[in-house]
Amino acid sequence: MAGVGRSGTQAGRFFLISVTVLFFAVFLLAPLVAVFSTALQKGSGYYLAALADPETAAAVRLTLLTTCIAVPVNTIFGLCAGWAIARYEFPGKTLLKTVIALPFSVSPVIAGLMFILVYGSGGLIGPWLEARHIQVIFAVPGIILTTLFVTLPLAAHEVIAVLEARGKEEEEVAWTLGATGRQIFCRITLPKIKWGLFYGVMLSTARAMGEFGAVSVVSGHIRGLTNTLPLHIEILYNQYDAVAAFAAATLLALAALATLAAKAVMELRPGLRGDRSAPGPAYAGGEK
């Protein structure tokens, strides 16, 4: 493809590729390698023992519980929001899109703060909850709520991106052919967006498992009870048990790698690459 007269000569091309590879190697690959090499520093026996630690196991369980609630809820929300936003015109649509993207632009610490201001003892509905002996902040519900907040836009964004890129003609055809709303959704829309949705779900999962700042604010850091995996990693790290910390971190790193693989698979699907001219990542550019 590189023809004569293109802006890159062979040397320039080689230089640019080298710069990129080097930059990525230092900033992206090296940290990943560091996670796995440190975790396995003291051998696989130590690695497995670190993972089997009861407190680590409890943190894994809480993280899984949080993820198993946050991801399905946000996926259902994402489908509803995607359908409403990409299929209809209504006043305030742009505003709604902006509001949905808000959690992207809020510092996780501030996100946690906001939930304390709602559900904490001095907060908006905190006293009401307290009177009924419902504890949200410094307890599991708070962790779940902040995780929901942080991962809220991810699935919605992917669904909106695919639906907007693919247009609504196929749904309209199905409608003229006599399909009901449910039939249109199940037979046309869902198959059409499944890879985008799949990536959105994977991304939500990775983020839900890995959320640190926001959860850190609302968790009471009670070991075995309100410690999620990332919080537990912090504790282990601060106790100078780096190998155990990294061992736990490998679990989250694997989830992240699975997400990247999911995206790569999605982009390989025929019919998706061409249609999604700008595979807008959820976090960059808000909405397209």
Binding site: V35, L203, A249, A256
Partner: peptide, 12 residues
Amino acid sequence: MVDLPFALPTAV
């Protein structure tokens, strides 16, 4: 790999 920082938990 470009998306790694987005998918990798910040604490990790």
